[in-house]
C-alpha cells in the first residue's frame, strides 16, 4: 500500500485542496452536492475541478450539460473537459470515454482500480484551488483505490452525504468507520432531501429564502434530523440540511446553474452555508 503512493505525479501538485464526497447509499445526492459545491466555489472566484470516480454510473457530465464532450490528450496527459462560459470548472469522468452514453461499464474491481489510478496520475488539472471527487456508493474498490492514490497529495478530507432516514444514516455510520480506518478526515455530514415545502399550500408572496423556509411547515418526506444526530453522536461537524427542492432537481436535469439562477429557492441558503464551512476549513488548514 505504501510503496504505490511513493511515485508522486506532477499533475496534482497544482491542486491546493482535495475533497472527497462519500455516502453509503445510492441516490442520496452525492453528485448533486458535488455539482452544487463546485458551482458555488466557482462563483466565489475559486478554480475548481471535479473528478468523477463513479465508473458504473457517472452523473456529473449530464448535470453540467457536457455529456457530449470528449477528453483530449496533451503532453502531460488527459485534458479535462472545461465547463461553463468562463471554462471555470474542469471535469474528468468516465462518461467522456464511452462510445455511447448508454454503454454499461461491466468491470470488476481490478479494472476499475486501474482507471482510477490513471485518473489520479494522468489528468492535466493545472492550478486548482479545489478538486472535488465524486464517488460511487459503498466502501469498496473505488474508495480504497481513490484514498490510496490521493493519500500523498493535499487531501483535505471527506464530506459524507445522507438522507434523513435511519436506513441511509446506518450506511453513513459505516462510511465514518471507513474514514477512521483509512485515516481520512471527516469535514462533516450533509443531510440531503431533508424536507419538502409543498408549493401548493405555501403562500407564494413570501418566497424569501431563509425567512420563507423558517415560516413554512415543511413536510418531512423522509424523517428528519438523522444526519445531525449522527454527527453529534460521532463527534464530527454537521454541515447542514438541504431540503428537497424541485427547482434544484430541475436545474440538474437541464444542466443549468442553480447557484446563479435560483438564489431565492429553499435549497440555496443551505448550499451556501455548506460552501462557507468548507472554505473556512480549507483556510484553517492552509
Amino acid at each position: 500500500m505504501e510503496g504505490m503512493g511513493g511515485e508522486r505525479n506532477t499533475n496534482l501538485l497544482g491542486v491546493r485542496h482535495i475533497l472527497l464526497v462519500l455516502s453509503g447509499k445510492g441516490g442520496v445526492g452525492k453528485s448533486t452536492i458535488c455539482t452544487e459545491l463546485a458551482l458555488a466555489l466557482r462563483h466565489r472566484g475559486h478554480r475548481v475541478g471535479i473528478l468523477d470516480v463513479d465508473l458504473c454510473g457517472p452523473s456529473i457530465p449530464r448535470m453540467l450539460r457536457v455529456q457530449d464532450r470528449a477528453v483530449h490528450q496533451c503532453d502531460s496527459g488527459w485534458v479535462p473537459v472545461f465547463v461553463g462560459q468562463d471554462r471555470g470548472i474542469a471535469l474528468m469522468s468516465i462518461g467522456f470515454l464511452l462510445e455511447r452514453p448508454d454503454d454499461a461499464v461491466v468491470w470488476r474491481g481490478p479494472k476499475k482500480n486501474a482507471l482510477i489510478k490513471q485518473f489520479v496520475t494522468d489528468v492535466a488539472w493545472g492550478d486548482l484551488d479545489f478538486l472535488i471527487v465524486d464517488t460511487p456508493p459503498g466502501t469498496s474498490d473505488e474508495h480504497i483505490s481513490t484514498v490510496e492514490a490521493l493519500r500523498h497529495y493535499k487531501l483535505l478530507g471527506a464530506i459524507l452525504v445522507t438522507t434523513p432516514q435511519a436506513v441511509s444514516v446506518g450506511d453513513v455510520r459505516r462510511e465514518l468507520t471507513f474514514c477512521k480506518k483509512t485515516g481520512l478526515r471527516v469535514l462533516g455530514i450533509v443531510e440531503n432531501m431533508s424536507s419538502f415545502v409543498c408549493p401548493h399550500c405555501s403562500g407564494s408572496g413570501i418566497r424569501d429564502s431563509l425567512l420563507f423556509f423558517l415560516l413554512q411547515e415543511c413536510t418531512n418526506i423522509f424523517s428528519k434530523g438523522g444526519g445531525e444526530e449522527l454527527a453529534k453522536h460521532a463527534g464530527v461537524p454537521f454541515l447542514g440540511c438541504v431540503p428537497l427542492d424541485p427547482q434544484l432537481s430541475q436545474s440538474l436535469e437541464e444542466g443549468r446553474d442553480f447557484i446563479q439562477e435560483f438564489p431565492k429557492s429553499s435549497a440555496f441558503p443551505a448550499l451556501a452555508h455548506i460552501t462557507q464551512q468548507i472554505l473556512d476549513t480549507s483556510q484553517q488548514s492552509s
Binding site: G109, P110, S140, R174, L176, T177, K181
Partner: peptide
Amino acid sequence: SPDDAVIWRGPKK
C-alpha cells in the same frame, strides 16, 4: 456493530 464497515475489494465480496 452497526458501525462496522465492510471495506472489501471485489474478490472478497
